[in-house]
């Protein structure tokens, strides 16, 4: 259990460091880093407070606290991935609408030039 929690602590710190590094190098925009930093922070707090983990495992009816940790990790990342799917869908819709608008404007500009 302790070893698992230590590994989780290291992974969560590594995750947050990687995200901050990516934000600094403009690979991830600040608004999209919030989900990952939040996820990393939740994992860090859980890995450093076994009492909270035991409490959650008890509430979930799980005899094994590490299993509760894994379930929580899964849920946290599920939320992050869901949020990113929403963002990607919005961006795709906007991208398609913009590409269509650009094509139509280009078409109209060309028609005007041909008339001159």
């Amino acid at each position: 259990m302790d070893r698992l929690l230590n590994v989780m602590t290291i992974l969560s710190i590594a995750l947050m460091a990687a995200v901050l590094f990516s934000v600094r190098r403009s690979h991830i925009r600040v608004e999209y880093s919030v989900s990952w930093l939040g996820a990393g922070l939740i994992l860090l707090l859980l890995s450093r407070s076994p009492a909270a983990l035991y409490w959650i495992a008890e509430k979930l009816g799980l005899a094994d606290p590490p299993l509760a940790l894994l379930i929580l990790v899964f849920c946290v990342f599920l939320v992050v991935i869901y949020r990113l799917s929403v963002v990607i869908s919005d961006l795709k819709d906007a991208n398609i609408a913009m590409a269509q608008r650009l094509a139509i404007l280009e078409f109209e500009l060309q028609s005007l030039n041909e008339k001159r």
């Binding site: 398609i96 590409a99 269509q100 094509a103």
Partner: peptide, 16 residues
């Protein structure tokens, strides 16, 4: 010819 700037797939193409 209405030229799309990048590939949108059939639906995006028809809708344009």
């Amino acid at each position: 010819v209405l030229r799309l700037p990048h590939h949108l797939g059939l639906g995006g193409c028809v809708q344009a």
